[in-house]
C-alpha cells in the first residue's frame, strides 16, 4: 500500500510552520504544570484557553471553544476534514499544536453563515454537493484557498489542490463543478 510519507506531503500542500515566528506571535505564560494559557483569534473573536501546548488546534476548536464545524477524520493529515485557514493558509488543524498557531484562524463558521453565505458556499448549495456532509467543511476551506490563489483553476489545478481531501460518499464530480461555478461567479 501507499507509504505514509507520500500522503502527508501531498495532503499537506500549504503548511510551512516557522517555529520562531509562531513563538513570537503568541504570548505564552505558564499556568499550572502541563497547561499554558493561549490566546487565539478565531473568526475575528478572541478566545483564551488553558491547555498543554501540544493539543492540536482541531481539538481546541471542537472541545474547548465548542466550534464543531471543523471535523476530526483521521488525526494524521490524510483526509483534510479538519482544514482551516491560519492567516489565509489552508492547514490541517489536527497537525498544528495550539502553541504553534501563528495567526488568525478562520473556520467554516467564519467563511459564511446560513444567512450570509460566501460565493463558494453558495456554489456548493447550487450544485447540491454534499451527501453525508462530514468532509465538506474541509473541502470548502481547501477550495477557498485554491480560489484565493487562482481565480480560474483548471481541472488539473483542482486535482492538485483538492487531492488531500477525502470524501467517502464520492462527491468529487460536484465539488469540481462547484469550484468552477464559484470561480465564474467571483470573476463576474
Amino acid at each position: 500500500m501507499q507509504p505514509l510519507s507520500t500522503h502527508i506531503i501531498r495532503a499537506f500542500p500549504d503548511v510551512l510552520i516557522d517555529p520562531i515566528a509562531s513563538f513570537n506571535s503568541i504570548k505564552i505564560k505558564l499556568k499550572k504544570e502541563g497547561s499554558v494559557s493561549f490566546k487565539l483569534t478565531v473568526n475575528g473573536v478572541s478566545h483564551t484557553v488553558d491547555l498543554p501546548a501540544e493539543v492540536p488546534l482541531l481539538w481546541v476548536l471542537r472541545d474547548e471553544i465548542g466550534m464543531t464545524g471543523t471535523k476530526f477524520g483521521c488525526g494524521v493529515a490524510a483526509c483534510g476534514a479538519c482544514t482551516v485557514h491560519i492567516d489565509g493558509e489552508a492547514v490541517r488543524s489536527c497537525q498544528v499544536q495550539v502553541a504553534d498557531v501563528w495567526g488568525d484562524v478562520t473556520t467554516i463558521e467564519g467563511l459564511g453563515q446560513p444567512d450570509t453565505l460566501s460565493i463558494l458556499q453558495n456554489a456548493w448549495l447550487e450544485n447540491q454537493v454534499a451527501q453525508c456532509g462530514y468532509c465538506q467543511s474541509g473541502q470548502i476551506m481547501q477550495a477557498a484557498k485554491l480560489l484565493a490563489d487562482n481565480s480560474n483553476p483548471t481541472d488539473e489545478d483542482i486535482d492538485d489542490a483538492m487531492q488531500g481531501n477525502l470524501c467517502r460518499c464520492g462527491t468529487y464530480p460536484r465539488i469540481r463543478a462547484a469550484i468552477h461555478d464559484a470561480a465564474k461567479s467571483m470573476g463576474a
Binding site: T68, G69, T70, T107, I108, E109, L111, G112, Q113, P114, L117, Q121, W124, L125, Q128, V129, A130, G133, Q136, S137, I140
Partner: peptide, 8 residues
C-alpha cells in the same frame, strides 16, 4: 444542504 455547507 444549507447546514452541511456552513458547518452547522
Amino acid at each position: 444542504m444549507l447546514a452541511k455547507v456552513t458547518g452547522t
